[in-house]
């Protein structure tokens, strides 16, 4: 069973699936914890494909979206909305941070380092074994430490979100799990869950004991 902390941060390489996982995780939190949930679109690197694209879906599920006023407007402005501070000030709500891709994307986390460190947070390394840069354990570990360095924060767990978009198979998730195990061994952190669309997760063999997190809703 997942034991969510009040603050969870999703980071990883471009295409690891951070946004897909963050949006589903925020909605899952809202449904299971019965508390206020905020999703923070913290992508200042790429103006395309971000959690703000899911604004209507999030609103329909009662999740508050915090995003730059420029998000989705086709104006590139790497600004952070002051409203982000509210999730630290309000000690009750759950907050999900969807961070931009790569080490450049992780840089703005440093702005809130003291606030993250003031409480017990989760920061996840979202891993997609089908991305060339994180295909090998060496590549994934390099990315892992680059992101930690850029964010100024320490990871607490790994998420296996291996996928090939619509062509994903259970085999891909199993390969991703093997890679996540190797990364887990080398960095000493647990694999929190393997995520995928419900139909793909159903195809996993009975012997697969890892935690599963279904991505019921599609953002992109």
């Amino acid at each position: 069973m997942l034991k969510p902390k009040r603050i969870s941060v999703f980071t990883g390489h471009y295409g690891s699936g951070k946004t897909e996982v963050s949006v589903n995780y925020a909605i899952w939190l809202r449904e299971t914890m019965k508390k206020d949930v905020a999703l923070i679109d913290m992508d200042i690197v790429n103006p395309f494909f971000r959690s703000s694209d899911a604004a209507d879906m999030l609103a329909a599920h009662g999740v508050r979206l915090i995003a730059s006023v420029f998000a989705g407007s086709a104006v590139e402005n790497p600004s952070l909305p002051p409203e982000i501070n509210s999730v630290f000030d309000d000690g009750e709500c759950f907050a999900v941070f969807d961070v931009g891709g790569g080490d450049d994307g992780a840089v703005p986390l440093g702005r809130y380092r003291s606030r993250f460190c003031a409480e017990d947070y989760d920061m996840f390394f979202v891993l997609n074994e089908r991305r060339p840069m994180t295909h090998s354990a060496d590549g994934a570990i390099e990315e892992f430490y680059d992101l930690e360095r850029a964010s100024g924060l320490k990871y607490t767990g790994i998420i296996n979100n291996t996928h090939l978009k619509g062509l994903t198979t259970a085999r891909n998730i199993l390969d991703g799990y093997s890679l996540a195990e190797e990364v887990s061994k080398r960095c000493g952190l647990p694999i929190c869950f393997s995520s995928g669309t419900p139909d793909v997760l159903e195809g996993l063999p009975d012997g697969f004991t890892g935690e599963r997190f279904p991505l019921k809703l599609r953002v992109t």
Binding site: G15, N128, R130, R131, P132, H163, L164, L167
Partner: peptide, 14 residues
Amino acid sequence: EKFLMKGNEAVAEA
């Protein structure tokens, strides 16, 4: 093998 790539990255790798 199939990999997931962005158009811009795919040009670079190719």
